[in-house]
Design a protein around this nucleic acid. Sequence first.
DNA 1: CGCACTCATGGCACCAAGTGTCAATCTGGT
DNA 2: ACCAGATTGACACTTGGTGCCATGAGTGCG
Lengths: 200, 200
Amino acid sequence: MNIRDEGSPGLRERTRRVVQAEIGEVAMRLFLERGFDATTMEQIANEAGISRRSLFRYFGTKEDIVLGNLVEAGLAVRDALEARPEGEPPWEALRAAIESLALDPGYSPERNLAISKMLYGTPSLRVAHLEKQLRWQELLVPNIQMRLGAETDDASDTRARAIVACTLTCLDVAVEAWTLSGGEEDLERLYDRAVAAVRG
Amino acid sequence: MNIRDEGSPGLRERTRRVVQAEIGEVAMRLFLERGFDATTMEQIANEAGISRRSLFRYFGTKEDIVLGNLVEAGLAVRDALEARPEGEPPWEALRAAIESLALDPGYSPERNLAISKMLYGTPSLRVAHLEKQLRWQELLVPNIQMRLGAETDDASDTRARAIVACTLTCLDVAVEAWTLSGGEEDLERLYDRAVAAVRG
DNA sequence: CGCACTCATGGCACCAAGTGTCAATCTGGT
DNA sequence: ACCAGATTGACACTTGGTGCCATGAGTGCG
């Protein structure tokens, strides 16, 4: 039986994280050099010094190498949303929760921009990204539903879903515009403008 | 040189359409019977009496068999949008344009529902569907931009993009709710409620 | 009619993303 | 030091998708 079910992640899990991060670094370098589609999983495995099979054990899909962190980012947004005051209206709470992301602070701005450009320029990635946003929806809807005062989880009550989905859509539009501007424009301003256009 | 560049589609093109439709019928039957992922392109080809290679010439991807018609549907929506009075505000024009779709009248309601259920229950299809909606965006944005009075096609002007994207998002939310309700709920009501929640 | 030209077809090989399986090999914890 | 369970690599396999080429069937034209 596991003695430390909770608490420190255990050594095995920790080494796994390290190895995964290392592989991710290698892969991202290749992606940015040769492009996403032009880089095969085999090349990544060779470069990282592991077998193709093991690579697939660290990243279930090629897209996950780029977008894997979005899962935990989604959880972070959810936590941030749930930490907002209970009376705060949906849009403000969502804006604040999303703001907690800003940009991935682990990377340099140029790298973030390069990644974004790859993301919006590669169909398969673009699509995988949209799917991740769909997952975010699931995470955020319950809290918004609560804020709307809907006790029943009535599936026909599309309000919370629509609000969350459109918020994420606005975010996506803003990030795309930011990417196209070469990172010059202010992301928050772009987002606010998008939301204003929708709600005005 | 082609004598009939414009005008009647030509015999070859016509037979192609017919064959394509026939293949589509066969494939949809298999999809609905055994599920999308559980049906291989080879099975479809065999059932349709053509080679796998030819099947790929009729449908570039497996998803296109289900979603191929969405391309022309998008064009129809764009045309409907451009046919709306010039002064009509964006949301109303979009609602009217989308309404022109209603539901694919070529199929029985049960079939439409079954397709929708498959669509929302199969990740790869769901994602491909989102990509098609992305294409729709591109088609609809220019007109909305015009309605907003933005002469410059400034990429940093996210307003039109945001409005179109959120409209389609609301549509998607509504259709999903409609699907989950087993087709009982009224789609237009669901859509209006979603939009009201967002813009309220 | 017969010639040439185009296009659809099918067969084949091939690529790349995943997946199942299994044996060998760590290795963390007692 | 030992052992159960996890990690790994190797191999085979499935499936979607593409390139290539020979063959044949329809089409247009003289």
